[in-house]
Structure formats: structure tokens, C-alpha cells
């Protein structure tokens, strides 16, 4: 049997909102250690890697490893039926055809059950090696979301250049161009407002706005986002999910023709 309970559905609701633009379906790998998802978008340009540790759940039981193929659109619809304060329980039996979502209101007076059919999926797991990146930037997630949104008006791609001085985002298009520079924070009053750059060597990479704007849907999950970059390799954009896990997005860079 598999059973995982969160005291508040808000986290799971936010996770679904953070992946629904990129994924139509995904396999949820459930084991003793927790729930993991690794899935590419249809175009194979980006990859979502989600990790929710079992010790972050209020209750977690997984008698045997399960791979459950889920339709993300349906799952999002179901999670939207839960109030943020509802307790959410995921339940499946061994060799399941279905997964059950159970929402219980705080006063325990309303109990909702939604059963979703699982789907068979071909899995294509990418082996992503541990990488030391040339630049690792931590910055406010809302600021990153704002920059992606603002610059998307000017072009289809954003160039990110990172040096010791700071991080510069540039977009150029038919109607003009725009660039936004953020300096490393000298002294941040609040940790979540800091811009921190850990640089081994400068990096300049170009990425499609469309995907960056999908990644920033994870903004409600965490006050800070971590961007890891090296020359000519995919960007890693990471959001912590409370003390339960993280979501990482990988995005292949655009390369000059």
C-alpha cells in the first residue's frame, strides 16, 4: 500500500501549478525515501525534476516501490478542488490502476475523494551527472519572475550574463532591446531579498523566454531561486519546497547558428 499525507494541500497545489505548463503527463516514482518525478517537456528542451522526501510528509507509507503514470492536467484539476488548508492524502494499492486523492477540511466536516486513472507510460530517464557550475546565483524568486516577464515583451530569448559584478539579463527584438542588471547584495536585511553570486568564471548563455516563464510558475513555492550556469550546458533553475524537497528545471541553451 502507498499512502502519503500532507497537513495542508497548499504545497501540492503549488507544485502542480509549477509543472502543468511543461508536462502533460509524468511518472511519479514512489519509494520508501519519497516521491520523485523526472520528465521532459514534449519538445525535449526542458526537464522537470521534482523530489519530495518521505520525512517531509505528515504520514508516509510505501510498502513497495510504485511507478504511477499520471495525467498532469487531470491532477491539476483535482488539486484545484482542495482548499489550501485541507489535509491531502494520496492513496494507492499495490499494482494500482487508480490513485485516490482525499481532502479533509480543517474542521473535519467535509471529506472529498477523487479517484484518478493511472496511465501506462514509456519512461525516458536522463542521467544528469553531478556538475560543478561556473556561476551559481541566488536571488529573490519574485524578482526573477518579474525580469522574465518584463524582458519577454522584447524578444523570444533572454541572454543571462553573470560576472563578479552582478548578473545581467538582456532581450533584443524587432521593437528594441532591454537589459536589467542586478548587483550582488552588499548587505541584505532579509535573507530572502539577497542576491548572492558564487562565480568561478563568467558565463553568458541564451534561453527561450517561453520556458523561463513556465519555470517562474514555481515562484509561490519559495522566496529565493537558485540559478546554476556553465558555458554551453543547460541552466538549472531550482526552488526549495519548504523542508520537504525541491523542484529543479533544466533548460537547454540556445546556441549561435
Amino acid at each position: 500500500m502507498f499512502e502519503a499525507r500532507l497537513a495542508q494541500s497548499a504545497i501540492l497545489k503549488k507544485v502542480l501549478e509549477a509543472v502543468k505548463d511543461l508536462l502533460t503527463e509524468a511518472t511519479f516514482e514512489c519509494s520508501d525515501s519519497g516521491i520523485q518525478v523526472q520528465a521532459m517537456d514534449n519538445a525535449h528542451v526542458s526537464l522537470v525534476s521534482l523530489n519530495l522526501r518521505s520525512d517531509g510528509f505528515d504520514k508516509y507509507r510505501c510498502d513497495r516501490n510504485l511507478s504511477m503514470g499520471m495525467n498532469i492536467g487531470t491532477m491539476t484539476k483535482i488539486l484545484r478542488c482542495a482548499s489550501s488548508e485541507d489535509t491531502v492524502t494520496l492513496r494507492a494499492w499495490d499494482n494500482p490502476d487508480n490513485i485516490i486523492f482525499i481532502f479533509e477540511s480543517q474542521n473535519k466536516e467535509k471529506l472529498s475523494e477523487y479517484e484518478m486513472k493511472l496511465i501506462n507510460m514509456d519512461q525516458e530517464h536522463l542521467g544528469i551527472p553531478e556538475t560543478v557550475y561556473s556561476c551559481v546565483v541566488k536571488m529573490p524568486s519574485q524578482e526573477f519572475a518579474r525580469i522574465c516577464k518584463d524582458l519577454s515583451q522584447f524578444g523570444e530569448a533572454i541572454t543571462i550574463a553573470c560576472s563578479k559584478e552582478g548578473i545581467k539579463f538582456t532581450a533584443a527584438g524587432d521593437y528594441g532591446n532591454a537589459n536589467i542588471k542586478l548587483a550582488q547584495t552588499a548587505e541584505a536585511d532579509k535573507e530572502e531579498e539577497a542576491v548572492i553570486i558564487d562565480m568561478q568564471e563568467p558565463v553568458k548563455l541564451t534561453f527561450a523566454c517561453r520556458y523561463l516563464n513556465s519555470f517562474v510558475k514555481a515562484t509561490p513555492l519559495c522566496a529565493q531561486v537558485k540559478l546554476s550556469m556553465s558555458g554551453d550546458v543547460p541552466l538549472v533553475c531550482e526552488y526549495q519546497i519548504g523542508d520537504i524537497g525541491h523542484i529543479r528545471y533544466y533548460l537547454a541553451p540556445k546556441i549561435d547558428d
Binding site: H44, E124, V233
Partner: peptide, 14 residues
């Protein structure tokens, strides 16, 4: 114009 890469050019299927 820069060309969009495929993620599978960077990572192999495990």
C-alpha cells in the same frame, strides 16, 4: 538567430 538545443544533446538516457 540562435538555435534551440535539445536537452538530449547534453544528457544521455539512463
Amino acid at each position: 538567430t540562435p538555435v534551440q538545443n535539445d536537452l538530449q544533446e547534453f544528457y544521455t538516457i539512463a
